[in-house]
Design a protein around this nucleic acid. Structure first.
Ligand SMILES: [Zn+2]
Ligand SMILES: [Zn+2]
Ligand SMILES: [Zn+2]
Ligand SMILES: [Zn+2]
Lengths: 134, 134
DNA sequence: TTTCGATATGTGATGTTATTACATTAGTCA
DNA sequence: TGACTAATGTAATAACATCACATATCGAAA
């Protein structure tokens, strides 16, 4: 499930929309982009997004209700640590990175508190280097 | 601005609704709870929430579209580091903590990338110790 | 005290994001 | 074939959030 080839038609269409975008897209923006391909209802987008999230090919940005293609295209599912996103509020660009020490600190807290973590969101909002130099 | 006394009527009503709740509440849940106090429209809630967020008295949980009273009632605005939330998907309980090392690591990344951070979200979803022992 | 500006409020309409419910279609495997 | 699972199509609805405009409240300046 880590190759674009095995995707269904709708999943491919949604993934390609995200992959060619230069930033995150909302589900309804994707829907509008794919009307020419036969998309008519939000569920067609959301169902594909759910699968792509499962496969680790895209990420959901909780703080802006949008989705972005994973920037590590050949290592889906991020078997390494948890992922952080830096989101520019000016231009919308998203930088994805992971940090082992943050991963460790979060795991330390959860284990010491008996908390079984399933998914962790780290989103840094601000202004990127390009936009800050304006 | 760090005392409940200086709040307006609507702000007090919304804050008290969150303070007496045992977990996060959505804006519309708050609205329903306050209909008896004269609330009729979402904006009455959202405007109060915005102010309370400004004052640091409440937090917004991005991953569940809900709001929670700050669990550090006497140190609003968290002049210390950034805050992380552990959210139990079973019972809804939220634990709030901050970690200087995580704060440092995030700041290291942002400064080295010229990214001016304004607000950082860290939300850990999972199952708390109580619910995990079921 | 009157005037003014800033803040807060009331209300309806609208915009945006996500899910429910049900019917249909397409592939898989006895 | 039949039975099963996954994927899809569609309409309706739910859940979350903001816009636009009118009104009210309060404190400082004149
Ligand atoms: Zn990724
Ligand atoms: Zn930017
Ligand atoms: Zn707090
Ligand atoms: Zn729990």
């Amino acid at each position: 499930m880590t190759s674009t080839q095995e995707l269904t038609k709708n999943q491919s269409l949604v993934f390609n929309a995200l992959a060619r975008a230069d930033g995150p897209l909302s589900a309804y923006t994707i829907l509008d982009q794919l009307r020419g391909d036969g998309f008519r209802a939000p569920l067609q987008v959301y169902r594909a997004l759910d699968k792509l999230l499962d496969y680790g090919m895209i990420h959901r940005l909780e703080s802006i209700n949008a989705f972005v293609a994973c920037s590590h295209p050949h290592e889906h599912n991020h078997s390494h640590g948890m992922i952080a996103f830096a989101i520019c509020d000016k231009c919308g660009q998203v930088s994805e990175f992971s940090d082992d020490i943050i991963t460790d600190r979060v795991r330390d807290w959860t284990t010491s508190h008996g908390f079984k973590q399933s998914k962790t969101t780290i989103e840094i909002r601000g202004v990127c280097a390009n936009c800050g130099n304006a």
